[in-house]
């Protein structure tokens, strides 16, 4: 009997990756943080991104591949604020990796470095999938990207001091490029101020806040609850007296309710990338904002 146990132990040992790799391994929950980590670490790190722009980061399954990647990671960069609460706790627990647990230096939650909007006054399931800490979809305001970049750059230097100077340099260079880009975006987007919009999910709050867009309605009756026909009918009625310029959705959201509303109102339907990789132009963080503004400006205020 004991021989059998030893045999299985051997199997497990042989399948474990041996030793640590020379370069830092970063596990990013969402593509925007994967892209940011890549910008700030360059050659010094290998970045694995756990989700794609075509997936809903609320509803991911703790797949074996995610657990295997988390097991090897030196740093986990996620949104936090409950966005990943359906799967990340399990991935971290199953990974059996003490370096990346919540509360250690190896875990960075982006929302800890950003003032959150829409903090709910009460917590009740009757209000849908609300996040107690506030709205976690912070990535569509470039000022938030810069806040997270500063925190992430410092954290990289802290956990990998050998390349500390390099991380500081890259952060400095990125901040300069980003600030220049933000000035350009702000000028380009000036005409969009006050533009009335309808969105699928409450994922654009920070973009609205940044650009001064006016959100009239959400296709989801409650956050995280799929659109219903009665709710769409109510929106249709509301849009008659107060029309919107555009109906916005992210690539992972069902196009049919958006299409339905477009057919009944004539308001253009627009798929914005929402994160890096959301379309062919949003290949990095700069492309994400360039393309988002271009698409909004094509429709115009």
């Amino acid at each position: 009997m004991s021989e059998r146990i030893i045999f299985w132990l051997w199997c497990v040992l042989l399948l474990c990756p041996l030793g640590a790799n020379a370069s830092l391994r970063i596990f990013a929950c969402e593509p925007e943080w994967g892209a940011l980590a890549q910008e700030l670490s360059g050659e010094a790190a290998v970045v694995y991104t756990a989700t794609t722009a075509h997936q809903d980061a609320h509803h991911i399954q703790a797949r074996p591949s995610l657990i295997a990647q988390a097991r090897r990671a030196d740093l986990v960069v996620c949104t936090g604020a409950g966005l990943e609460s359906g799967w990340l706790p399990l991935v971290l627990r199953r990974a059996g990796n003490s370096r990346i647990q919540v509360g250690t230096k190896g875990f960075l939650a982006a929302t800890n470095f950003v003032p959150l909007l829409e903090r709910p006054r009460r917590l009740d399931r009757a209000d849908g999938d609300v996040h107690a800490a506030g709205n976690p979809h912070i990535q569509m305001d470039p000022r938030n990207i810069l806040r997270v970049a500063e925190a992430l750059g410092q954290r990289l230097a802290e956990i990998d001091p050998q390349h500390g100077a390099g991380y500081h340099q890259r952060l400095e260079a990125f901040s300069q490029r980003w600030q220049a880009a933000m000035q350009r975006w702000q000028q380009q987007a000036a005409p969009l101020r006050g533009m009335p919009i309808v969105v699928y999910h409450r994922g654009w709050t920070y973009m609205n806040h940044w650009l001064g867009l006016r959100q009239l309605a959400e296709l989801e009756p409650l956050p995280g609850v799929l659109p219903t026909s009665s709710h769409l009918a109510a929106i249709l009625e509301g849009l008659k007296s107060q029309p919107a310029r555009v109906i916005i959705r992210a690539p992972y959201q069902d196009p049919r309710p958006v299409q339905w509303l477009h057919e009944h109102t004539g308001i253009p339907a627009l798929e914005l990338p929402f994160t890096v990789g959301g379309n062919e132009h949003a290949t990095d963080l700069f492309g994400l904002f360039d393309n988002t503004l271009q698409l909004l400006l094509e429709i115009g205020p």
Binding site: W8, C11, V12, L15, T52, H54, Q61, R63, P64, S65, A68
Partner: peptide, 15 residues
């Protein structure tokens, strides 16, 4: 006990 798993492209996963 032994568990193995992985992804097949973006759409599939197995264990």
């Amino acid at each position: 006990m032994l568990k193995l798993g992985g992804d097949i492209g973006d759409s599939s996963a197995w264990q």
